[in-house]
Amino acid sequence: MRRRLIATVSNGKGAIIMLRRLLSPRLARSPRRPPVMRHPIRVATALLPLLLYGGPSPAIDEAQTPASGAWEYLRQQFYGTRAIGVLDESFMSLEVAANTPDPAATPLNVRFGAAAIGHIRQVRVIIDNNPSPVVSTFEFARGARVAEIGLRVRVDRFTSVRAIAETTDGTLEMRSSWVNASGGCSAPPSAAEGGQLGEIRFRAAGNARSLQVGIRHPNNSGFQIDPVSGEAIAPHFVSHIRLSTAGRTLIDGDTGISLSENPTLRIVSDQALPAPLTVDVIDSKDGHFSASWQGLAAGHAATARATGALGDP
């Protein structure tokens, strides 16, 4: 048994329980006890001294609110009533810090285990409480040996972050995690502003199994305010990222305003990545940017070219 699935919904009660479980990832992982009551009480008691103090607690109010509306809707829209497995961390895991080092650029990894690599068709990342919850939807070419996909995202407030993968045999897997943050979507451009719009940088790890693609782009969310003029900065964001080799698409993704400024996509495989690898980027103003990674320097080139890790069935 590689995975345990939550029972398929067959009646109304089941649907409610399942939804509740889905709303709260911690509950879903400990199904023995009645799930509904535990979590809110635990949160309330943990936060009580802070509430009594009455100091600033922007994230706390939101912790009381079930992070539900967006996910309930999106689940229905994307996955209908299909069962979603949520248990086996060795098949797939989501890595994101509970306290983000940077709300405007929170690093997030979806990692696939040996049984999953080569069997993933699609990965979607959702941040429930963001103004635009769907961060990205990446389609993998058949057989693409993606061991890990990493993004940097904006987190607007205390929220569930989820990654939902669809396998090539049509089953669904979800991992989720709580992230505490504030103001990621409206944070003014800051950390590494400017540069040449659309410049693309590659950083490969020594064995060519991992490649970080950085795209110089403000990825303006539409929720940022120009501090000097006081006017809203118009949205201008990367809407599409495609990785291909030898004319063949390997990874194809729709993205949006929940990606950070200077969006990055990190791909890790269990084999050396193919080279040259071409990245095509399209933004919301129909800007097109493209660059190719030529593989590692001469000494490592053979390894880089030897296997088409991404995409060969």
């Binding site: 306290n99 080092p101 940077d102 950390a191 590494a192 940088r201 950083r203 950085g214 110089r216 200077n262």
Partner: peptide, 16 residues
């Protein structure tokens, strides 16, 4: 509460 933020910030600056 401070070091991860420092690294994240510097990483984003230096990568460009």
């Amino acid at each position: 509460s401070t070091h991860p933020r420092n690294v994240a910030r510097l990483y984003q600056q230096m990568e460009w």
